[in-house]
Design a protein around this nucleic acid. Structure first.
Lengths: 216, 216
DNA sequence: GTCTATACGATGATAGAC
DNA sequence: GTCTATCATCGTATAGAC
């Protein structure tokens, strides 16, 4: 199987990047962990940047596909019933897929943290991935939320969507944590709890009354 | 003046890190831009990590001091009037200082973007800075918001504070942008507008009804 | 103390044999 | 596809000039 090395590299890179950070993980460290040759990374991915991109996109592309499908479904149902979509349904289509596979596969939770960090980090390369992967999704969300909340100026609603993405990324960074600050007593997975809490938080933020020019 | 080199390095590093990302900025690039020797970074900061830390903390430490002072003031006023603090006042103490100096000094806006990114990024080192610098502030906020919103379970409120920080960091990454997506017509600074909008968003999110165990 | 020139080991990347 | 050898560049350390 020719893909074995490639997949091993992606798996180990995902884990090491999430644990130690991307900058602190060298290609030689990774090659040792995956038990492959040091040149394999450059052969399969062209560069370390190429590897990082594929580590992210391997998860992010199918995730955004599911998000888009569920968004489209919510919109078509609303249209067939001759009403505007509900904001909670739109947000559920965006947020639930994020955590669903993490709930099924606890070992994939480090990836959630990695994506949540990479999408907000300093590397210009990841900003590009974020914009490329989220542009179509964002267009749909932007239009849909305007329909759901017509009393909010489109410009402010668009800003709130960015705030919401910040909250969602915070939640993604949070799910792997078992520390005592956030979940002192829980022994079960906190994924379903975090999902509902962030959904609740964002929905309330998006519904807020319009911001006045002069302060409150 | 013996600090000239140090300050030049901090200034240029801040700008280059915000523009190209930290990983993509080499010490030699930085030394060329600042017109100093390559060894100057290691002499003044010990390492590139040390430089990055000081670039962030140079702004973050005084910012958090102002935040803490204003938080304490809000709490003492509320206590002297024999009432609980208002959540909007608490948030204003947290958020307004973030953008105030950016509004006065437009050239410092790239720094806001840098901090907003670094605090959420993949580098484990910055996570440490974030926790070290925010721990006392977070303790105050945690207690104060519990007083302001006693009907929300402390555990959920703590999570919401993390979501709020994600939104705030999103806003910080946003203020420097002059693109057409968010601010199509504005020619003036968008800083005051963003400040009020994110405050409004977060306040509404924190006030949300408690999340049920079973979904809505 | 402050700064410079220079050298060292490790890193990401590449070329060519197998 | 995989490997070894090699390269330019990176972050870092040191010795010494001012």
């Amino acid at each position: 199987m020719q893909c074995d090395t490639k997949i091993k590299l992606l798996d180990h890179a995902e884990r090491l990047f999430a644990e130690k950070g991307i900058r602190a993980t060298s290609i030689r460290d990774l090659a040792s962990a995956a038990k492959v040759n040091v040149a394999a990374v450059n052969y399969h991915f062209g560069s370390k940047d190429g590897l990082m991109t594929q580590v992210i996109e391997r998860r992010l592309v199918p995730l955004n596909q599911v998000r888009e499908e569920r968004l489209t479904l919510v919109l078509s149902i609303a249209e067939s019933e001759g009403r505007q979509p509900k904001i909670e349904d739109l947000l559920r289509a965006l947020i639930e897929p994020t955590f669903e596979f993490a709930a099924r596969l606890p070992e994939s939770q480090p990836f959630l943290e990695l994506v949540g960090r990479a999408m907000s980090g300093t590397d210009a390369q990841f900003r590009e991935i974020f914009h490329r992967q989220f542009e179509p999704l964002f267009q749909i969300l932007d239009t849909a939320t305007q329909s759901a909340l017509p009393h909010i100026p489109p410009q402010e609603l668009r800003c709130r969507l960015y705030f919401a993405m910040g909250s969602l990324h915070s939640a993604m960074r949070m799910v792997g944590r078992k520390d005592t600050v956030l979940f002192p007593t829980s022994e079960t997975s906190n994924v379903p709890v975090v999902t509902e809490m962030v959904l609740n938080f964002i929905a309330s933020g998006l519904r807020a009354p319009c911001t006045r020019e002069g302060k409150a």
